[in-house]
Amino acid sequence: MTKISVFIVEDDPMVLDVNKGFLEKMTGFTFIGAAANGKDALLQIKKLKPNLVLLDMYLPDISGLDILVELRSARVPCDVVMITAARDAITIQEMMRLGAVDYLVKPFRFERFQKSLQDYYKMAKKIGGLNQLRQEDIDEWLGSTGNSVSLPKGLNELTMKQIMLGLVGEALPVTAEQLAQNVGMARVTVRKYLDFLAVKEKVHIEMQYGNVGRPTRFYSLK
């Protein structure tokens, strides 16, 4: 396939230069433009129709969320990776519901940026060559970005992504019951995924002992 065209929306010139530098280190991608505000971004994205948009949340005029809503409403055929300092669970979940393929929280290292775009390239290349997708293709696409944990049989990529997103927005450690309420799942399901993540050293467990009964487990991202 031809190179994937990338458009960057970022109002900080230094951050823009860093992201452009990261992009230039990678093969298979070509930078086609940038915008420092939402109005210009929408005009240029609709005109250029890039394959992929690297989109900041906080802009001088409108938010990245507003831009993504407008792009989806106008059915602009582009994918979006969010690159922002926003960490609250509500914002992240809303972005994912609107179809963002990944969410990079500033500051991040080149390795995380590289993984995100490599995963995107791999699946864009694969899907671009198919007329119809198998269930395995769909599952691989939906679970390919943002989560480097290899799951055993019985655990689901999409459920894992929801739980990880729920943890991202928590400023303090939470119990499995609290997180289950926040993400709308059963406590026993959330507990199973959290304990697996703890074994993989992706989640930290803090035991708090009361006067009676078993200690309470509190979970947080490492």
Rank of each mutant, 00 (worst) to 15 (best):
K3Q: 13
F7R: 03
V9S: 04
D11A: 11
D12P: 01
L16P: 08
L16F: 07
F22A: 08
E24S: 14
G28R: 07
A36P: 11
K39A: 14
D40E: 13
L42Y: 08
I45Q: 07
K49H: 05
L54T: 05
Y58H: 14
I62R: 04
D66Q: 15
L68E: 00
E70L: 09
L71N: 05
S73F: 07
A74M: 09
A74D: 11
V76S: 10
P77E: 13
T84P: 05
R87V: 00
T91G: 13
T91V: 01
I92F: 05
E94C: 10
L98M: 09
Y103W: 02
V105F: 00
Q114E: 01
S116V: 03
L117W: 04
Q118P: 13
K126V: 13
L130M: 15
Q135D: 14
Q135P: 07
D139Y: 02
L142R: 00
G146D: 03
S148N: 15
V149A: 12
L155S: 07
M164L: 14
G166E: 04
L167K: 01
L167G: 08
V168M: 15
L172Q: 14
T175S: 15
E177D: 10
Q178K: 15
Q178A: 14
Q181W: 12
M185I: 10
V188F: 12
D195N: 14
K200D: 08
V212I: 15
G213I: 02
